[in-house]
């Protein structure tokens, strides 16, 4: 699998590695997918990178590759920002080859990472017709998670036709941030758009939302999909190639 802009792959890994330290990559002719839960089974990430999004892609037989994302992240940090990246696994090999190439082709780096034998547990995610779908700048969402974490461990997300409100309370007191739906969309990247069938009010752990925000550099906009008594879906699109979707179980009143 070759990417002209290897930095896209580095951003994917940075987006996942805090939530899941290691994961099984499923490779097929259609592309690369990954599904993994965090160790406490509260959050799940689902990654899709379609074959047509790569400069070149070939997969002769389906493979499951157990990879340490922490190690891969360390290797990818050595990559120059404009380098291209090729990932290769040879038949019957127990390692993955990560090759980087500088833009003017005067530097070539090759790394081999040992594959891991991982127990992977797969969950079926039902197609959900969410009550609310919010789109907002991903930088704004990162900022909100950071700001709300000052006040408490949990954030309550409430939606109305006018906008969306994030609030948190704790020992210090309480705080809230309300975003109003953009009425006059000039730049789509900066817009706040709320599609609502029913109002929702759901509570989530800020710590996990903040971990999801590590994937924010992938996309200028984030999608948040919400329904009562349903895990939140937080989506970052990967250009024309696919997406990273995070799911987070809500907090519930005892």
């Amino acid at each position: 699998a070759r990417l002209l802009h290897g930095s896209i792959f580095a951003k994917v890994i940075e987006g996942l590695r805090e939530l899941v330290n290691e994961a099984t990559w499923e490779c097929s002719g259609n592309g690369i997918t990954l599904q993994a839960m965090d160790s406490s089974h509260v959050a799940l990430v689902s990654l899709v990178m379609r074959s047509e999004g790569f400069e070149s892609y070939r997969c002769d037989r389906n493979m499951s590759l157990g990879i340490s994302l922490v190690s891969m992240s360390k290797v990818l940090k050595t990559m120059g920002k404009d380098d291209s990246l090729t990932i290769r696994v040879n038949d019957d090999s127990d390692s993955i080859i990560i090759a980087m190439e500088s833009q003017n082709q005067d530097k070539f780096a090759d790394y081999e990472l040992r594959l891991m034998d991982l127990d992977s547990e797969h969950l079926g995610i039902p197609d959900t017709d969410y009550s609310c779908a919010i789109k907002m700048p991903s930088s704004e969402f990162s900022r909100i998670c950071r700001d709300m974490s000052i006040m408490g461990d949990s954030v309550l997300i409430c939606t109305t036709k006018e906008g969306v409100k994030f609030s948190a309370k704790g020992d210090l007191g309480q705080g809230s941030i309300r975003l109003v739906q953009t009425t006059n969309i000039e730049k789509e990247e900066e817009a706040v758009i709320i599609e609502m069938k029913e109002a929702v009010a759901l509570t989530f752990a800020v710590r996990y939302l903040s971990m999801f925000c590590k994937a924010a550099p992938l996309s200028p906009q984030v999608g948040l999909s919400l329904s009562e008594d349903t895990p939140l879906m937080c989506e970052f699109k990967i250009a024309e190639m696919g997406h990273v979707r995070f799911y987070l179980a809500p907090k519930i009143e005892d």
């Binding site: 959050a43 969950l123 079926g124 907090k251 005892d254």
Partner: peptide, 14 residues
């Protein structure tokens, strides 16, 4: 009290 639920009740185990 507010409790953190896990994902299992929401998704099917494959």
């Amino acid at each position: 009290t507010v409790l953190q639920s896990d994902l299992y009740p929401y998704f099917d185990k494959l």
